[in-house]
Structures are given as structure tokens and as C-alpha cells.
Nucleic acid binder design. Sequence first.
DNA 1: GCAATGATTTACT
DNA 2: GTAAATCATTGCC
Length: 169
Amino acid sequence: MIGGIHTAGQITETEAYAVNDKACHCYAYKRTRRTEPMYLAGGHSYVYLCYGVHHLFNVVTNIAGTPEAVLIRSIKPLIGKETMLERRKMLLTSPKLSTGPGNMSQAMGITAILSGLSLCEDIIWIESVQNGDLSISSSPRIGVGYAEEDALRPWRFFLTDTQWISKPH
DNA sequence: GCAATGATTTACT
DNA sequence: GTAAATCATTGCC
């Protein structure tokens, strides 16, 4: 619920970032002002601006003091599609609407001012929808080639049978 | 205080 | 496939 408008979607693609992972901003417990939200308890948000253009939305997953998080890369729009189209300045719903971290954040109205929030309040929240048919695959992460051997870790997870998946550049 | 850089996207050659 | 856009954060001076 952002700006009084409710938008929602099913998460279809994520990437994991851990403290012993060179691709993570908090590698080896490096602590900076930007990454401070990652040191909160699991269930908080961590949003930051990348390349000066795109907002990336993460969910903090570990206990307080252990900075680990999951990057939400793509969603399938379910509620408020019209709002997402308007935010993205698009006319028709297509996979480009909300696949890819930057596109997804823009469609959901997420910006860096929402970093450090609890995901148990009425602004952003995540619901568990039981669906026994989910098929999930994994692969190396995208866009972290600078992380040396950690770039090969298969920490990208996505639904096998969906079009809402970003493609490597 | 200042230069370097990136968990990306988009458009162009 | 390659490059530009574009800026907060970081790290070094």
C-alpha cells in the first residue's frame, strides 16, 4: 500500500545475498550507512538506488546483526495492474512491466525512502499463498560478475513455469 | 572534498 | 553485442 494505492503481485524471481558472499553489500560484515537496514531483524525492507536510476527492493531474512537478504527481481501483477501500467508509462501488460529489479520496483512504487521499513505493517507486506504446484528452479545470479567465485553460486530462484522472469542481458 | 563505481535498463550499431 | 544514462554511496586524499 503505497501512496494510498494497493498494488500486489506474486513473487516469481529472487536472488539471495549472504554475509559471506562477495556480491553482497555487507560482505564480511562491512557496515555502512546504506546497508544499515540489512542489520535489522528479518522482515524488514532494504531498498537502494543502483546506477543512479533503478531502485532495488530486498527483504532482510536473518536475525538482527546478521546482514543477509533476498532481492526481489520479478513479480506477476495481481492487484492494481492499471496503477503499475501508469507508473511504468505503459499501455499494455507485458513481462517488461514487472520483471527485472528496477522494473518491478517502479511498478510497485517502491523507492529508497521505503528502506528499513518493517514488512509487517500496512505499507509493504508479504503474504504466503499456499500453492502446491509451484515448481522452482535455481541458477547463478545475474549482474554480479565482479564477485569472482561467488558469482557462480546458484542463488537465483525463480518459478519454472512463468513468463515473469527477467533474461540475462 | 573529490573521483570511482555499481545487485540495471534501454536504445542503438 | 556494445554503450550511454545518471547519482547515491564509498573510499581515499
